[in-house]
């Protein structure tokens, strides 16, 4: 309904054409290297997630891919068009919902959506129809005359998404789309992202919520300190460090983790602890992969530090 004429779900495996290709992007702010030789290859029709801790370079990368920031070096093409020489063509086919909701807070939801239609050069005769259809699909119709400042975070985010969809983008960039939202709103947005994707829109999203990446993404790239440290489907990434995780108490009550590819090996390791209740054998999750790749920062002397 949102994407004209492309309602058939497109299985990820069948879609191999790269719509975003970035090679060795470097972004420097003075001496600080925010993005360090990062490659991005997004296939048409997939949901590609950029997962990383705060300050990893996710937003900087997404700003490069959306033509908002010139990289210090590296080549980027979006749907075959080069950045920066063909930025105008790229901008016609992408939608971008920023981490900080970038709506005009002093005008209504309806006016914001209409303005985006005008800015994206949607034909004037289609703007009203598209606005009504998109609002209906996103459940925004009752709020159309509300000024944005009166909306809750979830509805503001939905309004921002409605704006980004006005020109029916082929690729939708979402920067931390569920940051700060409650559980209901988060699930509501996930469903919407899946629906958009099944209607043919390629989705590129950044997040630091593991659950979000695990639930939504066909492939996930993990970014840490400006570098891409892992890439693959959530399952592939889990398999890479070992499908089974054993967690147990180490010194000073700090949890330790070991990963095993083989179930029997994992069970043998668990047996070495005897009847200890603190040992847990479970499947490896994306969170394990994330923490292995980005490092577990632990203050072993926490109590000592707090109780001086």
């Amino acid at each position: 309904m949102l994407s004209s004429g492309e309602n058939t779900p497109a299985p990820y495996q069948q879609l191999c054409e790269e719509v975003i290709r970035a090679e060795k992007i470097v972004v420097k702010f003075g001496e600080n290297v925010a993005v360090d030789h990062v490659d991005v290859n997004v296939k048409r029709g997939e949901i590609y997630g950029f997962l990383g801790p705060n300050g990893a370079g996710k937003t900087t990368t997404i700003r490069v891919l959306t033509t908002l920031l010139h990289p210090t070096s590296g080549d980027v093409t979006v749907n075959g068009f080069k950045i920066p020489s063909e930025n105008k063509k790229i901008r016609r086919m992408i939608g971008f919902v920023q981490q900080m909701i970038s709506l005009d807070k002093d005008i209504s939801v309806k006016e914001n959506i209409i303005c985006h239609g005008y800015l994206q050069k949607v034909p004037k005769k289609d703007i009203q129809i598209r606005m009504e259809r998109i609002s209906a699909v996103l459940g925004l119709t009752p709020f159309l005359n509300y000024t944005v400042i009166k909306l809750s975070g979830g509805w503001k985010r939905k309004t921002a998404i409605a704006c980004a969809l006005m020109h029916d983008p082929k690729i939708l960039f979402l920067d931390e789309p569920t940051a700060g939202l409650d559980t209901q709103s988060r699930h509501m947005l996930w469903d919407m992202i899946r629906q958009l994707n099944s209607a043919g829109t390629t989705i590129f999203l950044t997040t630091h919520y593991i659950e979000e990446a695990e639930n939504l993404c066909d492939r996930v790239a993990i970014l840490n300190k400006g570098k891409r440290v892992a890439l693959g489907s959530p399952k592939e990434l889990c398999d890479k460090i070992g499908r089974f995780a054993v967690e147990y108490d180490g010194d000073n009550h700090v949890r330790k983790y070991r990963y095993f590819s083989d179930w029997d090996d994992a069970k043998k390791f668990v047996a070495t602890f005897g009847d200890s209740d603190s040992v847990l054998l479970r499947r490896t999750t994306l969170e394990d992969v994330f923490l292995e790749m980005t490092g577990r920062e632990v203050t072993t002397d926490f109590v000592k530090v707090v109780r001086i």
Partner: peptide, 10 residues
């Protein structure tokens, strides 16, 4: 508001 980016992107 970072809404100027939206204009630049058009």
């Amino acid at each position: 508001y970072t809404s100027f980016d939206e204009i630049i992107l058009c």
